[in-house]
Amino acid sequence: MSLVDSHCHLDSPGLAERLPEVLARARSAGIDRMVTISTRVRRFETYRRLSEAHPEVLFTVGTHPHQAAEEPDVPADEIVALSRHPRCIGIGEAGLDYHYDYAPRDVQQKVFRTHIAAARESGLPLVIHAREADEDVAEILIEEMARGEFRAVLHCFSSGRRLAEIGVELGLYVSFSGIVTFRNSDEIRAIATAVPRERLLVETDAPYLAPVPHRGRPNEPAFVADTARVLAETVGMTPDDLAGLTTDNFYRLFDKAAAHR
Rank of each mutant, 00 (worst) to 15 (best):
T238E: 15
P218V: 02
A138E: 11
D248T: 09
T234I: 07
V212R: 14
V224M: 05
Y173C: 04
L154P: 03
G236D: 15
V153H: 11
R189S: 04
P221W: 12
D205I: 10
G160F: 03
F176L: 08
A232L: 13
L245K: 15
T247Y: 08
R131W: 04
L201K: 04
N219K: 11
R252L: 13
V168N: 11
D226S: 11
E144C: 01
R131P: 00
L253N: 09
I188L: 13
A138I: 07
V137K: 03
G244E: 15
A138C: 04
S175P: 00
G236T: 15
H214C: 05
I188E: 08
L242N: 12
T193C: 07
R215K: 14
D241Q: 11
L170C: 10
E203I: 06
H214D: 10
A152N: 02
L163A: 12
R161D: 14
E203V: 07
N219P: 01
G216W: 09
D136W: 01
G171D: 03
E135K: 10
R215N: 07
E220K: 14
V127H: 02
Y173F: 14
V127F: 03
D134A: 03
S185N: 11
R161I: 05
L170A: 06
V137T: 08
L172R: 07
E132W: 03
R183I: 03
L141Q: 02
E220N: 06
R151F: 03
Y251I: 05
S177W: 12
T247M: 09
F176Q: 08
D134E: 14
L242Q: 14
P221T: 08
F150Q: 05
A138R: 08
E144R: 00
T204Q: 09
Y208M: 09
S185Q: 11
S177H: 04
N184Q: 15
P207D: 12
L231V: 05
E144L: 00
L163Y: 11
G216P: 07
V195E: 15
A206T: 06
R215S: 03
P218R: 10
F223I: 05
V153S: 11
L163S: 08
L141G: 00
G178N: 13
S159N: 14
G148Q: 05
V127P: 02
R147S: 00
V230R: 12
T234Q: 13
D205C: 08
L245W: 09
H129P: 01
T181N: 03
P196T: 09
T247V: 11
A222H: 13
L209Y: 11
R189N: 11
G178I: 10
V230Y: 13
A130T: 12
P125R: 12
T181M: 09
E203Q: 09
R215E: 03
A146C: 02
A190K: 14
N219R: 13
E198F: 04
N219S: 09
V153C: 06
G236R: 12
E233H: 06
D186G: 03
T238C: 06
E165V: 07
E132L: 01
A133F: 08
V168M: 08
I191E: 14
H214W: 07
H155F: 07
D205L: 10
N219Q: 12
L126V: 04
D248P: 01
Y251P: 01
T193M: 07
N249V: 04
P221H: 10
G148V: 00
A138K: 06
S158E: 10
E143G: 00
V127L: 12
